Amino acid sequence: MFRPSRQTLAAALVLASLAVHFGTVVLFSRQPDRFAAFTVIPVWIWGSFGLLLSCGAFLLFRARLSLFMTATWILTVLLVADETRGLARLGSAPLVAGPPARFDGREVVRVATLNRAGSNENFSELIIRHQPDIIFIQEIAHPYRLRQLNETLFQGKGDYRYDKHTRCGLVVRGVIEHHIPNPPALPYRNQQVRAKLPNGRRVELVNVHLQAASTDLTLWKRECWRSHCHNRQERRSEIAFTLQKLEKTNINPKLPAVIIAGDFNAPAGDRVFRLLEDAFSDTFSDAGAGWGNTYHSSFPLLRLDYIFASPAFYTARSRAVRVEESDHRMVVSDLVFR
């Protein structure tokens, strides 16, 4: 009976690690739709699998080439993983609860986004203590919760809007000058308003809640791959519609200050965000500190919630905050007008 030699087994483990590495790098860099089921899993999980193979080759068979593969995997994960940048900024000045501190002597606009996941509880004290000037909310059950939050945060000096078709809401320190709802016949969940802040600046705000993510991870089944592919294409269509609507309605005058925020139901680096890259920046990617993933709140493996800002802003600070009433973490960013 044929028995593979130790050298053969070692080579097989190293080659398997190399194959997984090659596939991971190619698929995460190109993000093809038909492989969305692969890239929805964080790169560091694939890296852990590749490291298991290469480390196994060394520990079991002392294969020297496995050390090269181990170093390659570590470098790849550090360079590609979205989480690396936030963790690298842990030593920077953090975003903390309370009134936002000025940044380089300039006034800060604090923006937050939270998927309430249908909760009908009162907004938690932690949200209120962060004192956002603008808060985007998705899956909020009743508009009176927005009114309560508006009164608590701004004591009559704020405004709010609720869209019953999308179950999205916005609360703003200042005045909402107009609200542009979606046509009721469309299934897309986004909400757009123009607001005037207390400093006199006007800003266009777009609240989004994209197509629910596919949760099927049975990668050995063809239907899983089809489901993730279709799901991503649907979300890309939603973003395209949102941007087209913004282009048509952000007029008289056209405002350079635009913020798009909400639950995008797509992991960081996903191809759906390429539609936003030219005109908007991801505020957590720019200045976020700590673990930025937002879902599931108790053990967040994915970053699904984002705040995107136009070039009229630069990001001073950003972080993800765990709150009691949701299975998503709240994203908070401090923005400064340029």
Rank of each mutant, 00 (worst) to 15 (best):
H142S: 10
S124F: 00
A101K: 12
R194P: 01
L78I: 12
T84P: 06
D104V: 00
S66N: 10
L87I: 08
I176H: 06
N115F: 05
L114Y: 03
V77M: 07
W73A: 05
L146E: 02
P183L: 01
Y144K: 00
E83M: 06
L146Y: 10
I137L: 12
D159Y: 01
L95K: 01
V77D: 04
R85C: 00
N199C: 09
P132F: 02
Y162S: 11
Q138I: 10
I135M: 05
P184I: 00
N182Q: 10
L90H: 00
V175D: 08
E151C: 01
R129D: 13
V193I: 09
E107W: 07
G200W: 14
I74A: 15
Q131P: 01
R167M: 03
P143V: 05
A71D: 13
T70N: 05
L90R: 06
G158R: 04
L87F: 02
L78Y: 09
H179P: 07
P198Q: 15
P99T: 12
L153E: 07
N120Y: 05
L153F: 13
E83C: 04
D82M: 11
S66F: 08
Q138G: 15
N120W: 07
K157Q: 13
H142G: 03
V111L: 05
R167G: 06
Y162K: 12
S119C: 10
T166E: 14
A97V: 00
I128L: 08
R110C: 01
A101M: 05
E151W: 09
N115R: 13
I128S: 07
E125G: 04
A71K: 08
Y188I: 08
E107Y: 00
Y188R: 04
A195S: 13
A88N: 03
T70Y: 08
P94Q: 10
Q148W: 06
Y162M: 09
R167Q: 12
M69P: 01
L114F: 01
L197M: 14
G174A: 10
R189M: 12
